[in-house]
Design a protein around this nucleic acid. Structure first.
Length: 922
RNA sequence: GCUCGAGUGGUGGAAUUGGUAGACACGCAAGACUUAAAAUCUUGUGUCCAUUAGGACGUGCGGGUUCAAGUCCCGCCUCGAGUACCA
């Protein structure tokens, strides 16, 4: 065999490991580059070809930056806490740490085979106590902090206590759930328990009774981003609302900064939009409507300009005032309606948006400006959890209010000048307001400002900004996660001292909840804990996103036992320059990591407030399934071309039995017992052709391709190049091994540039040919440009073009080939190292310098001008590149071929773009 | 519904600032080598008309701007992703 990739790849992988080729040096004078891939959860299924896609791109870029003289940090680790290992533990009784360890070993083996330039000495695992010690420590910092909305940053809780002692909470502008005011002397009079309860309302992580998404099948609560279409993202189980005492993270304090700072990061608009929508900022006003009975109803509106169009009010059925407001005669109807809505699950409520329902309370509010009586209704289209759980209904300006008013025959006032609202509400903010007292004749946008001004002046409300974002529930009732550094005395939570961290996971007899419904950790006896204080330890564990919210910092200083990352190293490595991973983390990991980064920045631990400067989201690789067609009558398998002649049903065939859509018939018979005696109706040429379709890769579709089998067959270099060659990184694309031969052939062709017909290494010294220099420098230019715009697929094409050209030129010049190898080494590092060594280099090619592009080699004496007539290219004419516009025009017009197209006419206009094109308008 | 992205040969895709549409690769076809196959090499390959020369059409659809449009503008269609009573 000429190009023996197996031997070559093994040799260089060993070399790299022994020489620690990819170890990053801290704090050098070189410019730094931090390239990161989202670390994987090590599942039992191992990697399929979709997983390494982003890693390969990330690896190529890291290697490229190294050749460009950067000090490169390119680490890898594992998000190794998670549900699947625990579910498996419940079924088998095996400790999740054991399964996780096995899966990890398998991942590592697969990753190693692909030849990544990871600095494995910096590996982190979120389930490692040495790592989660610091996750617990950061939790403690959050607990001991509050958010000052005036300075717009987090501050220590000590500062807050000092303020309480001096002046109470009257003047403080904090992110808090605390509504009651107290003075300094009140504070001093409170008991320890009372003081702690108040502080809880300010802490950035806090314990509170909150409505949570409870998933009975998984036995745990879930965050909003862990729910898709009303069911759990993992497993697809139903979710219900439940009031539980839970740890939460006050991420809402950062809502504004999380939106604003998106301007500073280079991410796709799609991800930025998703985050913006998730945070859901709306600017408006909160307005208080008095009721006849004297209760205040506070509403939130983004359209205070339409306040004179209010014709009724709607409260959420769960609203606390409903009971007080409802008149005796309406009691029954209201209770029936409340019951009706409470029986509906979240999913039903979402699914049934069309049906309009509601009930009148019998009570009336008074319009704050006109004093007019306004009916108060309840309806499930108003959500208890958003805003104040109450709206002022303006049917002319809101479609839901409009539909509701129509359904129940409530008056619709039109306060928009010259706008027809007979068919639907007018929701644009560009109308002129009319019939609205002091707002009349103002354009909506001005009216909004004036309305807020008047509302504030008259004291029945204020301008306000609301966010859809909720505080993030941080407790999980599961075993396989970080324990909290928390113990309880008299059910008051206290933090474990720093020098006792980490609180490690205790062993338990079963990974299931206790009979009283407590989380699995409640099974541990006091002696099972490495730290046990107070009456009991916290039974909950942290969610999956705890460890992943700061892991990129730990890679900078993975073995530090004093701090989670030293300030010095964090300053040096700074932000992640390029982050590559899936876009499915848009509202989870990527939001939480930004939140924690901002917090750590506020507290002065790090000097940057956004974690990931640039991000690329790789597209999903889809599988290409193969199908066989079974005749329903005879049970015979009909080939693709003849399937229409029979009534067939379509069945998946394992893609490993199919080559270029042709089925390996014997293999198929041996595949599953039921196909042992299968008989076939073949194409006329005697083959069985399969059908195909692009689907998600999954075991049940028999279309999973692992990287291992391809590395085995073609080598890691081929796999790396092929994954890049498939198409743009960001795009979803079908996986099809058809093309892999082409890429493999390219590497073999490259190999042959360095060898004679008998595979003897043979290169020539001396001055390279001009043509070859041109080929090389064209390639340098192209590949540099491709990398700079992250166009990995076109770079592979350009390598092929260069190799094809050099083959044609029969070029085996040492200088040319050496430079080409450096260019190629980020993509195909093994073959590049091998040939580089054969050229006589003593050091690894990773230590080389990226070639410098010299435009002189591309200068040509002649350019072949495409000559167009009326925009249609007719013929080509080679002309000197230094020829003037006038001379080019003359040369083209006097050319014999032009006469035919001119047909005796005089051209109206001639456009000459030197070095590009000539266009003649007739 | 809203937001974002994408529609180019038989297939994956290329065309970076408006300037030769289909680079590169797969597949397919023909040929060379071979007893044969595989591998390799050569040639061809957008569609239609034409023996050739050549011509017409062609980047989801319909308009527009321009000497020139896959690329810019307006209006639609289809597919994918996200989100959904958010006041």
């Amino acid at each position: 065999m000429d190009y023996n990739f197996k031997e070559i790849e093994k040799r260089w992988q060993n070399y790299w490991r022994e020489h620690k080729t990819y170890s990053a040096k801290d704090l050098t004078d070189q410019p730094k580059y931090y390239g990161l891939s989202m670390f994987p959860y090590p599942s039992g299924a191992g990697l399929h070809v979709g997983h390494p896609l982003g890693y390969i791109a990330s690896d190529i870029y890291a290697r490229y930056k190294k050749l460009k003289g950067f000090n490169v940090l390119h680490p890898m680790g594992y998000d190794s806490f998670g549900l699947p290992a625990e579910q498996y533990a419940i079924q088998t009784g095996q400790h999740p740490a054991v399964t996780t360890e096995q899966n990890l070993a398998r991942y590592r083996e697969q990753l190693d085979k692909i030849g990544f330039s990871f600095d494995w000495d910096r590996e982190v695992r979120t389930s490692d106590p040495n790592y989660y010690k610091w996750t617990q420590w950061i939790f403690k910092q959050l607990y001991n902090a509050w958010y000052d909305k005036t300075t717009n940053k987090a501050e220590t809780i000590d500062k807050l206590v000092a303020i309480f002692e001096n002046e109470g909470n009257g003047e403080i502008n904090a992110a808090t759930d605390q509504t009651e005011r107290f003075t300094a002397s009140d504070w001093k009079g409170f008991s320890e328990k009372e003081q702690q309860a108040i502080l809880m309302n300010y802490r950035l992580t806090y314990l509170a009774d909150s409505w949570v998404n409870w998933c009975p099948a998984l036995g745990t609560v879930l965050a909003n981003d862990e729910i898709k279409d009303g069911v759990s993202e993992r497993g697809g189980h139903p979710v219900e609302q439940k009031l539980m005492r839970q740890w939460s993270m006050r991420i809402t304090a950062y809502a504004e900064r999380l939106i604003n700072d998106l301007a500073d990061v280079d991410w796709t608009d799609s991800i930025k939009d998703q985050q913006k929508n998730w945070i859901g900022k709306s600017v408006g006003a909160s307005v208080i409507f008095k009721t006849e009975t004297g209760e205040d109803i506070e509403v939130f509106t983004t359209r205070p300009d339409t306040i004179f169009g209010v014709s009724f009010m709607v409260l959420a059925p769960e609203h606390e005032l409903v009971k007080k407001l409802t008149t005796a005669d309406r009691q029954e109807a209201i209770e029936t309606y409340q019951k009706q809505t409470s029986l509906k699950t979240e999913r039903d409520r979402q699914a049934d948006v069309k049906t309009i329902s509601g009930a009148f309370t019998g009570a009336y509010a008074l319009h704050p400006f006109t004093g007019e009586k306004i009916e108060i209704w309840i309806a499930d289209y108003v959500l208890a959890g958003y805003g104040t759980g109450a709206v002022m209904a303006v049917p002319c300006g809101d479609q839901r209010d409009y539909d509701f008013a129509n359904h129940f025959g409530i008056e619709i006032k039109n306060i928009f000048k010259d706008v027809d609202i007979s068919e639907s509400a007018y929701t644009e903010k560009d109308a002129t307001i009319t019939d609205s007292d002091f707002l009349t004749d103002l354009p909506a946008k001005k009216a909004i400002k004036l309305a807020i001004y008047e509302i504030e002046k008259r004291g029945f409300g204020k301008g306000q900004t609301n966010y859809r974002l909720r505080d993030a529930v941080f407790s999980r009732q599961r075993y396989w996660g970080e324990p909290f550094p928390v113990y309880y005395k008299d059910e008051i939570p206290y933090l474990v001292e720093d020098d006792k961290l980490p609180v490690t996971l205790p062993d338990v007899d079963k990974y299931l909840p206790t009979e009283d419904g407590e989380p699995p950790l409640a099974r541990a006896k006091s002696e099972d804990w490495n730290v046990f204080e107070g009456d009991r330890m916290e039974y909950n564990t942290m969610p999956g996103w705890a460890g992943s919210s700061w892991y990129f910092l730990r890679y900078m200083d993975p073995h530090n036992e004093q701090v989670f990352v030293s300030k010095e190293k964090a300053d040096y490595w700074n932000q992640v320059d390029l982050y590559i991973g899936g876009s499915e983390h848009a509202t989870g990991h990527l939001l939480y990591a930004r939140f924690w980064t901002k917090f750590l920045f506020d507290m002065g631990f790090i000097s940057f407030n956004e974690p990931f400067k640039k991000m690329i989201n790789q597209g999903m690789i889809l599988g290409r399934s193969s199908f066989v067609y079974r005749d329903k009558d005879s049970g015979k398998f009909v080939s693709f071309g003849k399937r229409k002649e029979y009534a067939t049903s379509r069945l998946h065939a394992d893609i490993h039995l199919v080559d270029n859509d042709e089925l390996n018939i014997d293999g198929f018979k041996n595949w599953l017992p039921e196909y042992k005696d299968a008989s076939f109706i073949l194409e006329d040429n005697g083959t069985y052709i399969c059908g195909h379709e692009v689907e998600k890769m999954s075991k049940s579709k028999y279309n999973v391709q692992t990287p291992d089998e391809l590395v085995e067959k073609f080598g890691a270099d081929t796999l790396r190049c092929y994954e890049m060659f498939l198409g743009p990184l960001e795009q979803a694309k079908p996986w099809d091994t058809k093309g892999i031969n082409g890429v493999h052939n390219f590497l073999r062709k490259l190999w042959r540039l360095f060898h004679d017909a008998d595979n003897n290494f043979e290169v020539s010294e001396g001055e390279p040919d001009k043509k070859s220099l041109k080929t090389l420098h064209k390639a340098i230019k192209k590949i540099q440009e491709d990398l700079d715009r992250y166009s990995f697929n076109t770079a592979v094409s350009n390598f092929m073009i260069a190799t094809n050209e050099l083959t044609e030129q029969q070029c085996n010049n040492k200088n040319i080939l050496g430079e080409l190898l450096i260019l190629l080494s980020p993509y195909a590092p093994h073959i590049a190292e091998e040939l580089w060594a054969k050229l006589g280099n003593k050091e690894s090619i990773t230590k080389a310098k990226f070639p410098t592009f010299n435009p002189d080699f591309l200068v040509e004496a002649e350019f072949e001008y495409p000559v167009s007539f009326n925009g249609k290219m007719r013929f080509k004419l080679p002309l000197p590149t230094n020829m003037s516009k006038e001379d080019i025009e003359a040369a083209v017009l006097t050319n014999d071929q032009s006469a035919k197209y001119l047909d005796g006419k005089t051209p109206k206009k001639v456009i000459v773009v030197p070095g590009r094109i000539v266009n003649i308008v007739i």
